[in-house]
Simulated scan of single mutants.
Amino acid sequence: MDIDAQFRSLRDLIRWIDENTKGIEISGGHREQIASACFDVAIEHQAAIAILCDSKLFGSMHALMRVLIESLVRGLWLLHCATDAELERFEKRGIEKHFGDMTEEIEAAIGAYQPTLSQMKKNAWGPLNDFTHTGYIQVTRRHGNGALGSNYPVADVIKCLNASGAYGLIASAQLAAMAKNNDLVQAHLIKMQEYASVP
């Protein structure tokens, strides 16, 4: 698949997510409201990644990928793992827990995303940090063919677009589950299979 085809696939997915989550009503209390807001932020970051790609702003697109994943993981952790005291602490000082610890707690609590979160942490977290904090991986993609500018390998761009689709879809599925809309949850499972099978 080329960049344009992967972009169109992500764009279509974003439209589907928007059509199926716009105005969604989340039941529950304060914890659910905070977690759902994290998922909504993740979905917004997913859309921003598509816009940045369409504008050929690949550096900013890659930098935002880590932020999308953090929004998703924070939402999952706050919803499924945080104690009441940790939830209160989040409101006052943020989350005082390492990202890896949060992913381990999520996996222990729900298990459903174990391969996704643990593999991402193991294989991609270092490069994601590098892209977000203007590390060596990010800056080496500013030179190519004798010109300074955006010189990202096609494979990097496609991988970023594909991953943003997958993580945004997980965030959207969480909203469907929180809304207790079983039909929409099933529709998300089908959409996940479809998206994963795109070449």
Rank of each mutant, 00 (worst) to 15 (best):
M102E: 14
G75K: 12
M61Q: 14
D183T: 00
L148Q: 03
A37M: 12
A50Q: 10
I95K: 02
L175N: 08
M192A: 05
I26N: 04
M178R: 13
G168F: 00
L72E: 12
C81S: 06
E88A: 15
V157Q: 12
E70C: 07
G29K: 07
T83V: 08
A109V: 06
D2G: 15
M61A: 14
R31Y: 08
N162H: 13
L64W: 00
L175E: 07
F39V: 06
P115H: 05
I34A: 09
C81M: 03
Y167C: 03
E107S: 06
G165P: 11
Q186V: 06
E104Q: 15
I106L: 10
G149L: 07
R89E: 13
E88P: 06
I69M: 13
Q33E: 02
I190S: 08
G94Q: 05
T132H: 09
C81A: 03
I106C: 08
I43G: 01
V185H: 04
Q6D: 05
F39L: 03
L57I: 05
H188F: 10
G126Y: 00
K191A: 08
A196V: 00
A109H: 09
M178P: 09
L57A: 13
V73C: 11
I49F: 04
I34R: 12
V154Q: 14
N162T: 14
G149I: 13
L87P: 10
G126W: 01
L117D: 01
L57T: 06
A147H: 15
G144R: 07
W77I: 05
F58G: 05
A109C: 09
H143G: 10
A173Y: 08
A171H: 14
V154M: 06
I26F: 08
Q46K: 09
G149P: 05
M65V: 10
V41I: 14
H80R: 14
P153N: 06
H133S: 14
L128E: 02
W77D: 04
C38E: 12
M178G: 09
